[in-house]
Amino acid sequence: MPETTSEDGPGDGVQIDLISAERMSGKTSMEKIRMILDGVRDGKIVVLEAGLTPDEESKLIEVTMSEINPDGFSGIEIESFPQSETNDTGLLGRLMGKQSTSKLTVVGPANQIQSLHKDETLISALVSRK
């Protein structure tokens, strides 16, 4: 069979998508979330150069929950480095409609990531190849 099913991803490898901040910048919240979840549901690890705003993160959790089903998708693992204090937009920025986005963010399918571990400067993902 030449085709692979979408759940298994291509072959038995693991695809990692690194998405630049530029590519994300023009997108709406829902477009970003769709892009992340479509990738993750295809078994990919999605790495975002610039992460999501808190509001987008809460929507990501909400949409993830609504898509979980017993036979295919059991949710996501996510880790990110927080925005450093120095360029925090703060209250004024938020009032002006700017929300600070977290920095580098890694998202992957929960059933394939055995562990996603973070300390201050390193995110480490252990992915099963099944």
Partner: peptide
């Protein structure tokens, strides 16, 4: 944990 960090971040962003 990431969930705690995200949730506290969401709560803070809404003041």
């Amino acid at each position: 944990t990431q969930v705690n960090t995200m949730l506290i971040g969401i709560i803070e962003s809404r003041d």
